[in-house]
């Protein structure tokens, strides 16, 4: 039988990059390595409470989301209204890799990401999980601990909300000049 550490070690190599990518988008900063570490330590300590019906990946994503929310709360920042990434003064990583700049490399993406961040929390959750991370409805439901119908509804509404943003129209029209959509 595998020990907890072996299990976590396996899972780490299988899923840590996905967790990292998720945390980058969820927190809005690339400086999430500490969070990745925390996720796997928490997972190792809490392996006893891992429900077998959830896949390791969704379980880890769920922990990751909680860790990110916790982190945001201690910073007294509200994730859902974040327009700028966290500035951690104690952190001396090169600023050139700050998330904003990376996302700004592609202006359209950056604007879209800003729009997503401005959405309500429940919309933002599904937009990042379903949309950006490309997870299935059932995976998203497991991570958010809600029903699949809620994921579907919220995703649908979130997309609607995005499209109702004035910026969305600019984006949409700019990127698809021969737009089929009526203004």
């Amino acid at each position: 039988m595998q020990s907890n550490q072996e299990t976590i070690s396996d899972w780490f190599y299988l899923y840590s990059q996905e967790i990292y990518n998720f945390l980058v988008y969820y927190t809005g900063t690339r400086d999430v390595e500490d969070l990745v570490q925390e996720v796997f330590i928490k997972a190792g300590k809490g392996l006893g409470s891992y429900r077998k019906e959830a896949s390791p990946k969704t379980w880890l994503m769920r922990i990751a989301r909680n860790v990110a929310i916790d982190k945001a709360r201690t910073k007294e920042t509200r994730l859902s209204r974040l327009s700028l990434p966290w500035q951690d003064s104690s952190n001396h990583r090169q600023t050139s890799s700050s998330p904003e700049q990376i996302l700004l490399e592609n202006e359209e993406k950056s604007e879209l990401y800003q729009l997503i961040n401005q959405q309500k929390k429940k919309f933002r959750d599904v937009l990042i999980l379903r949309g950006i991370q490309g997870l299935s409805v059932s995976e998203t439901a497991l991570i958010l601990d809600c029903k699949e119908t809620a994921v579907r509804t919220n995703y649908h509404r979130a997309i609607q909300a995005l499209k109702n943003e004035p910026n969305w129209r600019d984006l949409y029209e700019r990127s698809t000049p021969h737009s089929r959509h009526q203004t």
Binding site: S16, Q17, Y20, N21, V24, Y25, R30, E33, V36, I102, N106, K109, L112, Y113, L127, R130, G131, I132, G134, I159, L162, K163, L171, Y172, S175, T176
Partner: peptide, 15 residues
């Protein structure tokens, strides 16, 4: 669909 595609097309970050 357009919205989905746009969301899909975000770059993947890796450590």
């Amino acid at each position: 669909h357009t919205a989905d595609t746009k969301l899909d097309a975000f770059p993947t970050y890796r450590m």
